[in-house]
Design a binder for these strands. Structure first.
Length: 1130
RNA sequence: GCCGGGAUGGCGGAAUUGGUAGACGCACACGACUCAAAAUCGUGCGGAGUAAUCCAUGGGAGUUCGAUUCUCCCUCCCGGCACCA
C-alpha cells in the first residue's frame, strides 16, 4: 500500500502547490457574479430552510477571529441544506443604532451615520474574505430609513393597542451615558455598556408593556410544536357564527355507528366544511364531556359513550371580525353510540349541517380539511402523534429566560392600616335634598365611630334650594378642616365640599367624592337642574390637589353611565383614581354602601407565597416608597425619623440596597398599626429598604419564624418571633386574600435620551394629547445634526432642533411638538429577521405570503449573552405581531444554537484593551479562508468557549493540503467496495453531525476518511467527488477548485449531497471483544450474523479464554451479537 | 441561597441506546529523505513496570456480567437569577 502511495499515477496533471491566495478570491468573484446563493420563494415543492446569524453590530475595531465562528457554522449548514435540495435563505445585515456607535462617533468626532457606513463597509470586506454564501441582495441595516420606517410602524401598532405608554416611574439612569436604561441593560446595578453605577430617577419615559406577555413568553418556552404541516392554517376563521373554526379549544368527535363500521360525518352547508362533529370545550369541561354534550345537541343521539382520546392538533387562524390571530387546539376523541335512539334537533341545527354515515374509506375521501384528515389518520393509526418542543433551544437559555421572567404564584392579602392613638376625623357632606339622616350617612357614621373616629355630619341649610356661599360658610363654621380630616361628599355635596376646601385653603388628609354632581356646561345637552345657577362651578384643580396632597378618590356607580364620563374627566384633572363600583342602590342611595367605607379604609396589600404562615405575622414592612407611607407621614409620631430614612434609601444605588449581606435597616412608623385579617391582631408597621417598591405590592407581611430575611430584621430590631403551626394554604387564600401571580419581569423602558436611534413617531399636542404620526408620514427621519452629544438634561439632543421638533398636530392641525426621545438599540433587532424575507417591500414590513413561506427561522445562531435581551424582546414583538395578524406563527426562532466564545491565546477575552486580538484578515493571508473555517469548526464543541491557538491551525492546513494531494492521485478506475465503505461511513456521520451542529466530529470523520483513502489502492473519480461534496460546506474554495479541475461544469455547491446507503457498510465478519469478568482480555473474528450461542462457543475457544479461564468455573456467559462476549467465573 | 451546564493524557477534545476509554488534531520523541535545515512521509506517544500485569475518565459510595455513560453524596469550575416576600 505504501508502495502505491509513493508512486502515484496521476490522471490529472500534477498541480502546483496549494495556494489559497490564488483560488479563494477567484471563486468568491465567480460565486457573486453567477448569483448561486440567491434565494427566492420557490415555486416547486422544495422545502425551505431559513438559517440566520445574529447580525453584527459593526464596531470601529472590525472583526476578530471570534466573530465569524457562528457565521461559519450557519454557512456550513446552509451549504449542506442547499446541496440536499432545500430552498435556503441565508441573509446578513447590520445592527447599527444605539450607544456604541454613537459613543464611537463622539470619540472620533465623526457623524454616526458616516462612521457606521465606514464600519459596515469594513465588516463586509472582512466577511467576504471568508467565502460566505450570504444572499447580499437581501442585506438590511437598522439605521436605513427604509428599514426603520417599519420599526416605527410596529411601534405605532403597539401604541394603538395600548402597549406603548408614558410612564413617570423612577427608572434606571446612567450618568455617564446620560440616558435611561431598561432593566435588561443593567448588570449588577451597573450600566452594561460603561460600568457606571446606575441611579434611580423618576422621569417621563415611553414604556412597552412586555409584562402583558410575561405569561406567554414563559409558557411557550415549554410548548410543544405539534405537527407543523397541520398547524399552518390557510383559513380565515369566525367570519360568521356558523363558521366551524372555534376560538376556544374544541372537541372533535369521531363517532362510530352502533352496529356497523361507519362513522358520522357532517357537511357544514354555509362553508362547505367537511369533517366530524365539533364543538367548543366550555370552562370546566374536559374533552369527553364536551364531546358527549355536543353530540347530543347537534345530532340528537342520546346514548353516547366517550371511549378514548385520539390526539391533538394545534390550530391557528386569522379571526376576521376581531382582526387578530387565534390559536387553539382541536382535541379529538373517539365516541361510540349504544343505539340509534335520538331526540329531535332544532331546525336551526338541521339547516346548518348534513349528517351522514360513512365507511372508513368514504370518510377519508369525504374530509376536505387537513386537520380533520390528520386526526382521522391518528384514529386509524396511519400516523402517530409526534410531540416535539416548539422551541428547540438550549436548556440554559430557556432557563435564563424563565429566571428573568421570574413567575411566582402566591396570594395577595389586605392588611388594614390604622392609627393606634390618633383617630381620624370624617366630615360627611350630603347632597341635594339630602340630610345626614338619609341614605348611607347614619350607617357610615356608626361604622366610623365604632372604630373610634370622630365624625362631623352637618345638616346643610336649605337642602332643597342650596346656595353655594351659604353651604360653604356653613361647612366652614361647623366642621374642622385640618391635617387629620377626611372629607366624604356625595353628589351635590361634592361641589359644596370642594368650594369649602378651596375657600378654607387648609391642608386635609383626604377627599372622597361619591358620584359628584356634574358641571352644567360639561355636557351641553344635560338637563337643567334647579341648583345649577346657585353655584359658580369653577374649580381650582391645582389648589385642590395641593390641599389634599392628591389623596382623592372618586367613586363612580357603574349603573350611572351618564355620570361616568364626568367622573373620568374629574379624575384626570385631579390626577385621582376613579373607583368604579356597583352601588347597592343607584347613585349610592342605599342604607349601607360598603364601597364607600372600603375606600376610606387604608389597606396595604401584601404579596406572599406563604399564606399558610399568616398566624406567624409579627409586623408589616412597607417599601420606603410605598404609597401609604406618604399618606401617613403627617399622622405618625416620628415623621422626621421616617423622612430621613426615606431620603437615605433614595440616595442609595440599587446595588447598595439589594446587598443581602449587609445588616438590614428600617424604621417603625410609630403610631400606626396593621390589622392581621386572620386573627384581628394589631402588629407594628415598619419601612425597610429590603422590601422593594417595584416588586409585587411593595409590602410584606413579616413572618420571622418562617422567613430568613424577616428573621434577620426581627433580630436587629428586637421584634417578636412567634412560632406558629402552619395552616392550609388554599384555605387561607380563600378566607383572607386572593390568588395572584407575580413576575420579576418589568415593562421595557423604551426611550433613550440620545441622538443615534429611531425617532419615536409620536407628536405631543397641547389639545389632543399624544398623537401618532400618520402611517403615510413614516419614516420620521432622524435629522442630520452638528451636535449629537447627550445633553444630560433628560432630553435628547433632538429637542434642541426647533425646525424638527415643531410640527402641526396631525389631528387638529394646531401647533405641536415631536417626541424627542429615540428608541433603544434593541428595537431594530427585535424584528429584522422578518425583513430579510422581503427586504425591499415598500407597502408592508413583510409581504404576508413571503412571511408565511419563510417563517419561522429554522436555525438561529448567536451568542448566549442575548438570552435575556434580544431573544426576549424579539419573542415579545413577534407575539404582538402575531396577535394583530401580521405574522403567522407564535414564535420567531425554531431552533436556537449558542456559539461558544473564542478566547485569546492568553485565556482572556479578545480585546483591543489587552492587545490580544487576532485579526481574521491576517489568518486568511497566512493560511487561507478554508483553513480558518476548518480550524474554527474543529476547535471543539461548537457551543463551548475555547482559546485560540494559531499553532494548532497547521493541522487544518495540513488536512487541506493532503486533500489537494489526494486529488492528484485520482485515476479513471472503478469504485471499489473498500472506498464505498469508507465513504458511506463518512456520509452518515458527516450528515448527522452537520445536522446537529457537531462540526468538530464531522471534520474528524473527514480526516479519518482521508487517512483511509490515502491508504486505499485506487482512487476513482466518483470517490473523490463524493469526498469533495462532503468537505464542500467546510472548505468551499478548495473543493470548488478541485471539483472543476476534474471536469465539472456546475458548482460543487449546487451538486447533490450524497445519500447514505447502509447496505454498503455491511461486512462479512465482525471483531468481537472478549471479556473475562468484565475486563477486556482479547478479541476474535466472527461472522457478522453470528448468534449468541455461536459467539459463546467461539469465545470459549479463543486463546485468551484458555489462559484466563484455567482452573476457573464458568458461571455465566453474556454474548452481545456484533459486539462482545463476557465470560463470568465463579 | 435557587436554577442550569460542566470536570476524560502535556493541550483541544472523541466515545450517538451502559459494551475494546483516549478517535481526530496539536505538541513531543525517534526514524526515512537531505550536505544540512524546513517541509513531507513513517513509527511511537495516559501512568507504573524489563515483562506478565496493575492503576487510571474530579472524589466517595451504589446498581450491573460490564459504568466516562445510570442513581445517591461530596469537591471544584462556568453561566443565569437573587434581600423577589
Amino acid at each position: 500500500m505504501i508502495e502505491a502511495m509513493k508512486k502515484p499515477t496521476p490522471a490529472r496533471a500534477a498541480k502546483e502547490a496549494y495556494d489559497p491566495a490564488k483560488i479563494e478570491k477567484k471563486w468568491q468573484k465567480k460565486w457573486a457574479s453567477s448569483k448561486v446563493y440567491r434565494s427566492t420563494e420557490s415555486k416547486d415543492a422544495k422545502d425551505k430552510f431559513y438559517v440566520l446569524d445574529m447580525f453584527p453590530y459593526p464596531s470601529g475595531e472590525g472583526l476578530h477571529v471570534g466573530h465569524p465562528k457562528g457565521y461559519i457554522a450557519t454557512d456550513v449548514v446552509s451549504r449542506m441544506k442547499r446541496m440536499q435540495g432545500m430552498n435556503v435563505l441565508h441573509p446578513m445585515g447590520f445592527d447599527a443604532f444605539g450607544l456604541p456607535a454613537e459613543n464611537y462617533a463622539i470619540k472620533t468626532k465623526t457623524n454616526p451615520a458616516d462612521s457606521v457606513a465606514k464600519n459596515v463597509a469594513h465588516y463586509k470586506e472582512q466577511l467576504e474574505l471568508l467565502g460566505f454564501d450570504y444572499d447580499w441582495s437581501r442585506e438590511v441595516n437598522t439605521t436605513d430609513p427604509k428599514f426603520y420606517k417599519w420599526t416605527q410602524w410596529i411601534f405605532l401598532q403597539m401604541f394603538k393597542k395600548g402597549l406603548a405608554f408614558e410612564s413617570f416611574e423612577p427608572v434606571n439612569w446612567c450618568p455617564t451615558d446620560k440616558t435611561v436604561l431598561a432593566n435588561e441593560d443593567v448588570e449588577d446595578g451597573r450600566c452594561e455598556r460603561c460600568g457606571t453605577l446606575v441611579e434611580k430617577k423618576p422621569m417621563r419615559q415611553w414604556v412597552l408593556k412586555i409584562t402583558d406577555y410575561a405569561d406567554r413568553l414563559l409558557k411557550d418556552l415549554d410548548a410543544t410544536g405539534g405537527i407543523p404541516v397541520v398547524t399552518a392554517r390557510e383559513g380565515k376563521g369566525a367570519a360568521h357564527e356558523n363558521e366551524p373554526f372555534i376560538e376556544r379549544d374544541a372537541a372533535v368527535c369521531i363517532i362510530r355507528h352502533w352496529s356497523e363500521d361507519k362513522y358520522l360525518c357532517v357537511n357544514w352547508k354555509a362553508t362547505n366544511w367537511q369533517g366530524f362533529v365539533i364543538g367548543g370545550i366550555e370552562k370546566g369541561e374536559d374533552m369527553g364531556t364536551a364531546g358527549v354534550r355536543e353530540i347530543q345537541e347537534e345530532t340528537g343521539f342520546k346514548n353516547v359513550r366517550f371511549v378514548r382520546e385520539v390526539g391533538k392538533v394545534d390550530t391557528r387562524f386569522y379571526q376576521v371580525i376581531k382582526q387578530v390571530n387565534r390559536h387553539a387546539h382541536y382535541v379529538c376523541g373517539y365516541f361510540e353510540l349504544k343505539d340509534g335512539e335520538r331526540t329531535d334537533i332544532s331546525q336551526e341545527e338541521k339547516d346548518l349541517q348534513d349528517p351522514m354515515w360513512l365507511s372508513p374509506a368514504e370518510v377519508q375521501k369525504f374530509l376536505n380539511h387537513e386537520d380533520m384528515k390528520y386526526l382521522w389518520d391518528l384514529y386509524t393509526g396511519a400516523k402517530k402523534q409526534e410531540i416535539k418542543p416548539l422551541l428547540e433551544w438550549p436548556e440554559s437559555i430557556k432557563e435564563a429566560q424563565r429566571n428573568w421572567i421570574g413567575r411566582s404564584e402566591g396570594a395577595e392579602i389586605d392588611f388594614e392600616l390604622a392609627l393606634t392613638k390618633k383617630k381620624s376625623r370624617y366630615v360627611l357632606i350630603h347632597g341635594y335634598k339630602g340630610s345626614p339622616a338619609d341614605d348611607f350617612f347614619p350607617w357610615l357614621k356608626t361604622e366610623f365611630e365604632k372604630k373610634g373616629h370622630e365624625v362631623q355630619a352637618p345638616a346643610l341649610p336649605n337642602p332643597n334650594d342650596p346656595k353655594e356661599s351659604e353651604q360653604v360658610d356653613f361647612i366652614l363654621k361647623n366642621c374642622t378642616l385640618d391635617k387629620n380630616t377626611v372629607i366624604i361628599a356625595h353628589s351635590l355635596g361634592c361641589v359644596s365640599a370642594l368650594k369649602a376646601l378651596m375657600k378654607s385653603n387648609k391642608q386635609i388628609s383626604g377627599l372622597v367624592l361619591v358620584a359628584p354632581a356634574i358641571e352644567p356646561n360639561f355636557n351641553k345637552e344635560s338637563k337643567e337642574r334647579p341648583y345649577h345657577s346657585n353655584f359658580s362651578w369653577n374649580y381650582d384643580f391645582e389648589q385642590i390637589k395641593k390641599l389634599t396632597s392628591g389623596r382623592i378618590a372618586l367613586l363612580s356607580d357603574t349603573k350611572e353611565i351618564h355620570r361616568s364620563e364626568y367622573i373620568k374627566y374629574l379624575g384626570t384633572k385631579l390626577s385621582a383614581g376613579v373607583i368604579e363600583v356597583d352601588a347597592v342602590e343607584k347613585h349610592f342611595t342605599g342604607a349601607q354602601e360598603p364601597s364607600i367605607l372600603e375606600c376610606c379604609t387604608p389597606k396595604a396589600a401584601v404579596f406572599t407565597t406563604r399564606p399558610d404562615t399568616i398566624f406567624g405575622v409579627t409586623y408589616l414592612v412597607l417599601a420606603p416608597e410605598h404609597f401609604w407611607v406618604k399618606e401617613f407621614l403627617d399622622l405618625i409620631d416620628n415623621r422626621a425619623e421616617v423622612e430621613a430614612y426615606i431620603d437615605r434609601a433614595k440616595s442609595k444605588t440599587d446595588i447598595e440596597r439589594t446587598d443581602g449581606t449587609k445588616e438590614k435597616t428600617g424604621v417603625e412608623l410609630k403610631g400606626l398599626c396593621a390589622i392581621n385579617p386572620a386573627n384581628g391582631e394589631k402588629v407594628p408597621v415598619w419601612i425597610a429598604d429590603y422590601v422593594l417598591a417595584d416588586y409585587a405590592t411593595g409590602a410584606v407581611m413579616a413572618v420571622p419564624s418562617h422567613d430568613e430575611r424577616d428573621a434577620q430584621f426581627a433580630k436587629v430590631y428586637n421584634l417578636p418571633i412567634i412560632d406558629t403551626k402552619l395552616e392550609d394554604k388554599e384555605e387561607m387564600v380563600q378566607k383572607y386574600g386572593k390568588k395572584v401571580v407575580k413576575y420579576k419581569l418589568r415593562d421595557w423602558v423604551f426611550s433613550r435620551q440620545r441622538y443615534w436611534g429611531e425617532p419615536i413617531p409620536l407628536i405631543h399636542c397641547p389639545e389632543c394629547g399624544v398623537v401618532a404620526v400618520p402611517e403615510k408620514d413614516l419614516p420620521v427621519k432622524l435629522p442630520k445634526v452638528k451636535f449629537y452629544e447627550p445633553t444630560g438634561t433628560g432630553e435628547s439632543p433632538l429637542a434642541a432642533i426647533d425646525s424638527w421638533v415643531n410640527v402641526k398636530c396631525p389631528q387638529c392641525k394646531g401647533k405641536a411638538k415631536r417626541e424627542t426621545n429615540t428608541m433603544p438599540q434593541w428595537a431594530g433587532s427585535s424584528w429584522y429577521y422578518l425583513r430579510f424575507m422581503d427586504p425591499d417591500n415598500k407597502k408592508a414590513f413583510v409581504d404576508p405570503a413571503k412571511e408565511k413561506y419563510w417563517s419561522p427561522v429554522d436555525l438561529y445562531v448567536g451568542g448566549a449573552e442575548h438570552a435575556t435581551r434580544h431573544l426576549i424582546y424579539a419573542r415579545f414583538w413577534h407575539k404582538f405581531l402575531y396577535d394583530i395578524g401580521a405574522v403567522s406563527g407564535i414564535e420567531p426562532f425554531k431552533k436556537l444554537q449558542s456559539v461558544g466564545l473564542i478566547m485569546a491565546e492568553d485565556g482572556r477575552k479578545m480585546s483591543k484593551r489587552f492587545g490580544n486580538v487576532v485579526n481574521p484578515d491576517d489568518i486568511v493571508k497566512q493560511f487561507g479562508a478554508d483553513t480558518l473555517r476548518i480550524y474554527e469548526m474543529f476547535m471543539g464543541p461548537f457551543d463551548q468557549a475555547i482559546a485560540w491557538s494559531t499553532q494548532s491551525m497547521v493541522g487544518s492546513r495540513r488536512f487541506i493540503e493532503r486533500v489537494w494531494k489526494l486529488a492528484e492521485r485520482v485515476g479513471a478506475g472503478k469504485s471499489s467496495a473498500e472506498n464505498d465503505r469508507i465513504l458511506h461511513k463518512a456520509i452518515k456521520k458527516v450528515t448527522d453531525d452537520i445536522q446537529s451542529l457537531r462540526f468538530n466530529t464531522a471534520i474528524s470523520t473527514l480526516m479519518i476518511a482521508l487517512n483511509e483513502l490515502e491508504k486505499s489502492e485506487s482512487l476513482d473519480r466518483h470517490t473523490l467527488e463524493t469526498y469533495l461534496k462532503l468537505l464542500a460546506p467546510f472548505a468551499p474554495h478548495v473543493t470548488e477548485e478541485l471539483w472543476t479541475d476534474i471536469g465539472n461544469k456546475k458548482s460543487v455547491h449546487v451538486s447533490e449531497w450524497p445519500i447514505f446507503d447502509p447496505a454498503l457498510l455491511v461486512e462479512a465478519t465482525a471483531t468481537i471483544i472478549l471479556q473475562i469478568n468484565g475486563k477486556t482480555r482479547g478479541s476474535f473474528i466472527a461472522p457478522s450474523g453470528a448468534g449468541k450461542e455461536e459467539l459463546e462457543k467461539a469465545a470459549k475457544s479463543a486463546p485468551e479464554a484458555e489462559k484466563w479461564l484455567k482452573d476457573k468455573v464458568i458461571q455465566r456467559v453474556i454474548a452481545v451479537p456484533g459486539k462482545l462476549v463476557n465470560i463470568v467465573t465463579a
